[in-house]
Measured scan of single mutants.
Amino acid sequence: ETQAGIKEEIRRQEFLLNSLHRDLQGGIKDLSKEERLWEVQRILTALKRKLR
């Protein structure tokens, strides 16, 4: 995994995270989306740690 590859994956995950946040802010309670949001946040945290 290169730095560029990790950064690209971070961009993808952040896009997905923002999309999930928008969907959930629409007021629709969706447990699967909430679980996915937490999963994406965990992935992002792990990726950012790899960059250090």
Results as ranks from 00 to 15, higher is better:
residue 38 W to N: 12
residue 12 R to N: 05
residue 35 E to P: 03
residue 39 E to A: 06
residue 20 L to W: 01
residue 9 E to F: 05
residue 51 L to N: 01
residue 34 E to N: 06
residue 31 L to C: 11
residue 50 K to W: 04
residue 17 L to W: 11
residue 23 D to P: 02
residue 13 Q to R: 02
residue 25 Q to G: 05
residue 47 L to W: 01
residue 15 F to V: 13
residue 15 F to G: 09
residue 17 L to M: 06
residue 4 A to D: 09
residue 43 I to L: 13
residue 23 D to A: 12
residue 5 G to H: 12
residue 43 I to Q: 07
residue 39 E to I: 05
residue 13 Q to P: 01
residue 44 L to E: 00
residue 5 G to C: 15
residue 15 F to T: 13
residue 16 L to H: 02
residue 46 A to L: 08
residue 17 L to Y: 11
residue 18 N to P: 00
residue 45 T to L: 11
residue 16 L to V: 06
residue 14 E to W: 10
residue 34 E to C: 15
residue 2 T to S: 08
residue 31 L to E: 12
residue 32 S to V: 13
residue 15 F to D: 15
residue 38 W to E: 10
residue 33 K to P: 04
residue 49 R to D: 12
residue 26 G to T: 11
residue 11 R to N: 04
residue 51 L to S: 01
residue 7 K to H: 08
residue 3 Q to K: 10
residue 22 R to L: 10
residue 11 R to V: 06
residue 29 K to T: 09
residue 44 L to W: 00
residue 46 A to I: 11
residue 15 F to R: 14
residue 37 L to F: 12
residue 35 E to A: 12
residue 15 F to C: 15
residue 11 R to H: 03
residue 20 L to C: 09
residue 14 E to G: 02
residue 23 D to Q: 12
residue 11 R to G: 03
residue 14 E to H: 07
residue 37 L to W: 06
residue 47 L to C: 01
residue 35 E to Y: 12
residue 19 S to L: 13
residue 30 D to R: 01
residue 28 I to H: 08
residue 45 T to N: 11
residue 16 L to C: 10
residue 20 L to S: 00
residue 16 L to T: 02
residue 5 G to V: 10
residue 30 D to M: 03
residue 41 Q to R: 12
residue 47 L to G: 00
residue 49 R to C: 11
residue 24 L to W: 03
residue 6 I to G: 00
residue 13 Q to Y: 15
residue 42 R to G: 04
residue 16 L to R: 02
residue 51 L to E: 01
residue 29 K to H: 12
residue 11 R to E: 06
residue 18 N to G: 05
residue 19 S to E: 14
residue 41 Q to F: 12
residue 19 S to W: 10
residue 41 Q to L: 15
residue 16 L to G: 00
residue 29 K to E: 06
residue 13 Q to S: 02
residue 41 Q to Y: 14
residue 9 E to C: 13
residue 46 A to Q: 09
residue 16 L to P: 01
residue 5 G to R: 15
residue 48 K to H: 06
residue 48 K to T: 03
residue 10 I to Y: 02
residue 31 L to W: 07
residue 35 E to F: 11
residue 50 K to L: 13
residue 26 G to F: 09
residue 51 L to G: 00
residue 34 E to M: 15
residue 39 E to T: 04
residue 37 L to M: 13
residue 4 A to N: 07
residue 25 Q to H: 12
residue 45 T to Y: 08
residue 1 E to Y: 08
residue 16 L to Y: 06
residue 20 L to R: 00
residue 25 Q to S: 08
residue 19 S to G: 05
residue 30 D to W: 03
residue 46 A to W: 09
residue 40 V to D: 00
residue 4 A to S: 08
residue 28 I to L: 10
residue 22 R to M: 10
residue 20 L to G: 00
residue 41 Q to K: 11
residue 17 L to E: 05
residue 28 I to E: 10
residue 18 N to V: 12
residue 17 L to V: 06
residue 42 R to M: 06
residue 32 S to I: 13
residue 2 T to R: 08
residue 43 I to W: 03
residue 52 R to D: 11
residue 48 K to F: 08
residue 34 E to R: 13
residue 9 E to I: 03
residue 52 R to K: 11
residue 21 H to C: 15
residue 37 L to S: 08
residue 10 I to P: 00
residue 21 H to P: 01
residue 25 Q to K: 12
residue 34 E to P: 02
residue 13 Q to F: 15
residue 50 K to M: 11
residue 50 K to R: 08
residue 11 R to W: 04
residue 13 Q to H: 14
residue 51 L to P: 00
residue 10 I to N: 01
residue 8 E to R: 11
residue 9 E to M: 10
residue 40 V to L: 07
residue 20 L to P: 00
residue 24 L to I: 07
residue 12 R to Q: 07
residue 38 W to K: 14
residue 45 T to G: 06
residue 51 L to W: 03
residue 5 G to F: 14
residue 35 E to W: 09
residue 1 E to M: 11
